[in-house]
Design a protein around this nucleic acid. Structure first.
Length: 482
RNA sequence: GGCCCCAUCGUUCAGCGGUUAGGACGCGAGGUUUUCAUCCUCGAAACCAGGGUUCGAUUCCCUGUGGGGUCACCA
């Protein structure tokens, strides 16, 4: 039976390189064995999921050439492929769990849960649900639920014994049931949590192999217990190592550009990017590290996959990409260059520069800072710290801004208006005048003291590039003598 | 902290009981190039530690150490 695998991203932000990484391995494995690669959207978090994020994920994965055989936008006969459209299915299935005692209704309020956690913390106990509602008579619980009392549905984890998850890459992993929490399966808003939705969907969609990041290992026993509760055969599990920051922590946007779009906008070739990603954990053997997706598919075998978490180091990616650019034929390179530089943004660049150039030939030099990654701060570094501020404070403000553009609803979409609104409030909150903040941001984002309107500039640069440069500006400031 | 995972040059991937421990990126030196880049040559650079098993351990086992993940009505 050919394998059916899936990638199940949550549309809650920019398309993540980790998603591409896991997608690549799912894809390679499926294609190697003539199987099916499925894209499922895990949008059960109604607060954070967005339509635009979903679209961006599709776009990013397609850019890389990781096309899926079934998914929300391409269809398939095991749909729908968006979890928000499957809520009836989850509710129906959770009923069988309720009926056979694998799950129970819990009426605890969030206040009680918070108090419970506080107490557990005070007593240095491991946090976890205390089973307060486990003993409620199912019939009573059902009628209370019928009466409209708010509640969630939890997994009833056996108090004794252990649950084993079979990892095809790592062998058996044993968990004592006492350590496994009574996870919420169905939230009070009627939406399932990841655990329930994932198991129900994987089963119903006929998923045979679950290839995912190792950060899921600890929830493995919950999933196994769920399969058991349903009376289903669990799929085979493969937990990949996680991509890391230079300090070995899990790859994060705080420390690294993690959006696929970032690498795309910096002009990495998608084929190179994929090849580079593949070398993180996979090898062809025989010291060969340059290969195409097709070649990887041909050679794919789990014995060539490492479980250690690789550091995602862009330096080598640059070298790979440079080699590939040199190898392109002149016409293809010319086309790629023009497309990359101007497609979709020529209009913006012209708008932003037309009042500031006198000759046609001024155009390219003027807009040059809209391209490329890090910039040279040597001509502006001396002007970055505002007159009445010091270096330390300036660094602090830049760091806060960096965090702010993630947190702020207004700034997150990185539009001209949103950035303006956010930045004004941000300055006030920091006790800085716009006159102090804006030149600093301009210098940090562009390496210049002059540019088009700050927010136009930031928006046109794009969030990832701005983030990258702000971080590098902080580094430049740190190196500056006091 | 509890539980779980991982462990070869700075990074990445080889090695799957006996090797001068290999390739790539990066780094250093030299050469080609008017310069830079490219390209070529050479070089420095690693088996986390301690116990076992074995004639023999980087390789198998155990312990320690280190790093990571996870402990939500987020995925």
């Amino acid at each position: 039976m050919p394998p059916r695998v899936r990638i199940a991203p949550s549309p809650t932000g920019d398309p993540h390189v980790g998603t591409a990484y896991i997608a690549l391995f799912n894809y390679a494995f499926a294609k190697k064995h003539g199987g099916t690669f499925i894209l499922r959207i895990e949008d059960t978090d109604q607060q954070r999921s967005t339509q635009s994020s979903e679209a961006a994920i599709f776009d990013a994965l397609r850019w890389l050439g990781l096309d899926w055989d079934e998914g929300p936008d391409v269809g398939g006969d095991r749909g729908p492929y968006r979890q928000s459209e499957r809520t009836a299915i989850y509710r129906e299935h959770v009923q069988t769990l309720l009926n056979n005692g694998t799950a129970y209704r819990c009426f605890c309020t969030s206040e009680r849960l918070a108090a419970m956690r506080a107490e557990q913390e005070a007593n240095k106990q491991n946090p976890g649900y205390d089973g307060h509602c486990r003993g409620i008579d199912p019939a009573d619980a059902a009628s209370r639920a019928e009466g409209g009392e708010a509640h969630v549905i939890r997994l009833r984890v056996p108090e004794e014994g252990e649950t084993v998850i079979v990892d095809e890459l790592r062998g058996d992993i044993h968990f004592s049931n006492a350590e496994v929490d009574d996870q919420v399966l169905l939230k009070s808003d009627g939406f399932p949590t990841y655990h329930l939705a994932n198991v129900v969907d994987d089963h119903l969609m006929g998923i045979t192999h679950v290839i995912r990041g190792e950060d899921w290992i600890t929830s493995g026993p919950k999933h196994v217990l769920l399969y058991r509760g349903f009376g289903w055969e669990p799929p085979l599990f493969f937990h990949m190592g996680l991509l890391r920051n230079a300090d070995k922590s899990k790859l994060s946007k705080r420390k690294n550009p993690v959006s696929i779009d970032h690498y795309r906008s910096l002009g990495y070739l998608p084929t190179t990017f994929l090849n580079f990603l593949a070398t993180m954990g996979f090898s062809m053997g025989e010291d060969q590290e340059r290969f195409t997706l097709e070649e990887m598919v041909q050679a794919f075998d789990w014995s060539h996959v490492k479980t250690g978490g690789p550091v995602f180091d862009g330096v080598k990616l640059d070298a790979f990409c440079g080699d590939d650019i040199r190898a392109m034929d002149p016409q293809a390179l010319k086309d790629a260059l023009v497309k990359h530089a101007f497609e979709g943004r020529l209009e913006t660049l012209v708008d932003l520069s037309r009042e500031r150039i006198n000759r046609l030939d001024d155009f390219l030099p003027y807009i040059s800072f809209f391209f490329g990654g890090e910039v040279d701060y040597s001509s502006v570094i001396g002007k970055m710290v505002p007159k009445k501020r010091d270096k330390k404070e300036t660094i602090k403000v830049l760091k806060a801004y960096l965090e702010g553009i993630e947190r702020s609803e207004a700034a997150r979409a990185f539009t001209v208006e949103g950035l303006g609104e956010f930045s004004k409030e941000f300055a006030a909150a920091q006790g800085w005048k716009p006159k102090e903040l804006y030149p600093l941001l301009r210098a940090a984002a562009t390496g210049r003291t002059a540019s088009p309107s700050l927010f136009d500039t930031l928006a046109a640069l794009g969030k990832d590039r701005v983030r990258l440069r702000l971080r590098s500006a902080i580094e430049a400031l740190r190196r500056l003598a006091d």
